[in-house]
């Protein structure tokens, strides 16, 4: 089964990470060479994918309209669902990016009393949003390892995130949220028959890998503390191109790192590229101004058409018989 294949893949990753932790040469590889390799693949791959999409032309303006068009002045247009200018398009895109507008529409369907009934199904939206926002916050918080002195906004972000001051060290809200989000997404995939049916190995793998990163991160923070000073030294070493093998960071840290590098390397060739793709989607990022402005197709080639002359040639007699005007008598 696809889920099992994904589990095995993550297990293999974990074991290799353990192997790495206990071998000096390999851990040098992981902490001094792989960071650059992974980062290069990630950035290079990301750009490659975007360029590849961007190079394909957009021959037609195929906006999907989800609200009233701009037509007569007394009919109220819906600028965010059927944008007719650049500003409205940006508004529409912002809603999609930051609030997952379209996902918010989600419903589910059941046949009740011989009739389909549509129920509200906002859970996917809620947990999807929870996961993505907390992921963003966590990534931003990680910047504290790479920057010295830590810039104030990162500090405030961490403070707000740890607002409730539960436990020592403080439990971050984003950590709770991302666990909740990922767990929901994973359980949903596993338990909803329809979703299990469409899920590929890679779909489970993405979630398991992210869960793996989050879990090892939490373990280091709350159960097997890694020496943060050493972690910071390591990270600063990377950015100053003087990586030094870390001491006292613990086995879990090696697993955490291996997972992260796997994610970075895999990212550009995976569905996770939706992060870049969402900006380019022609059904969302084009204005519904089709009849206002002509859209050009770079490869618009002539095709074989049936001209009026050919038409009249065939039907001239019949047209005359019916009393219809003709061009040539």
């Amino acid at each position: 089964m696809n889920l099992i294949a994904a589990l095995i893949a993550v297990l293999i990753l974990t074991l290799s990470a353990l192997g790495i932790a206990f071998s000096a040469t390999l851990s040098f590889l992981l902490t001094a060479i792989l960071p650059y390799a992974a980062f290069t693949v990630f950035i290079g791959g990301f750009i490659y994918r975007i360029v590849k999409w961007a190079k394909a032309p957009v021959p037609f303006r195929i906006t999907t309209t989800c609200g009233q068009q701009t037509s007569l002045p007394w009919i109220k247009n819906n600028p965010l669902e059927s944008p007719s200018n650049v500003w409205s398009v940006m508004g529409r895109m912002a809603l999609e990016l930051f609030l997952f507008r379209s996902l918010f529409r989600n419903t589910d369907v059941a046949i009740v009393g011989q009739r389909p009934v549509y129920g509200s199904a906002k859970w996917l939206w809620f947990f999807g949003l929870l996961f993505h926002w907390s992921l963003l916050i966590i990534v931003l918080r990680h910047l504290r390892f790479f920057i010295e002195p830590i810039t104030p906004w990162i500090k405030s972000l961490s403070t707000i995130d740890g607002f409730f001051e539960i436990g020592v060290p403080t439990l971050y809200l984003s950590d709770v949220a991302i666990v909740a989000g990922l767990t929901f997404l994973f359980l949903r995939r596993m338990t909803v028959p329809r979703l299990r049916y469409i899920s590929l190995v890679t779909d489970y793998f993405a979630l398991l890998l992210l869960l793996g990163i989050v879990t090892t991160g939490l373990l280091m923070r709350h159960f097997f503390p890694a020496d943060l000073l050493h972690v910071k030294n390591l990270a600063l070493g990377w950015v100053t191109f003087a990586p030094a093998a870390p001491k006292g960071v613990g086995t879990v840290f090696y697993i955490h790192l291996s997972f992260v590098f796997t994610l970075l390397v895999w990212f550009p060739s995976s569905k996770l590229m939706h992060m870049g793709g969402i900006f380019l989607s022609p059904t969302r990022n084009l204005a519904n101004d089709n009849r206002m402005k002509r859209h050009l197709n770079p490869w618009n080639a002539p095709v074989k058409v049936h001209t009026y002359e050919e038409y009249e040639e065939e039907f001239r007699d019949k047209m005359k018989l019916a009393g219809l005007p003709v061009e040539k008598e």
Binding site: A56, P57, V58, P59, L124, R194, I198, S199, P282, T283
Partner: peptide, 23 residues
């Protein structure tokens, strides 16, 4: 794939979230 960005993109970015499934 080369002529339509829509097509190439739609081939690549689906996350199989299933939001479209029962629509």
């Amino acid at each position: 794939l080369e002529k339509y960005r829509s097509f190439r993109l739609f081939m690549d970015i689906c996350v199989r979230c299933g939001a479209c499934a029962d629509k």
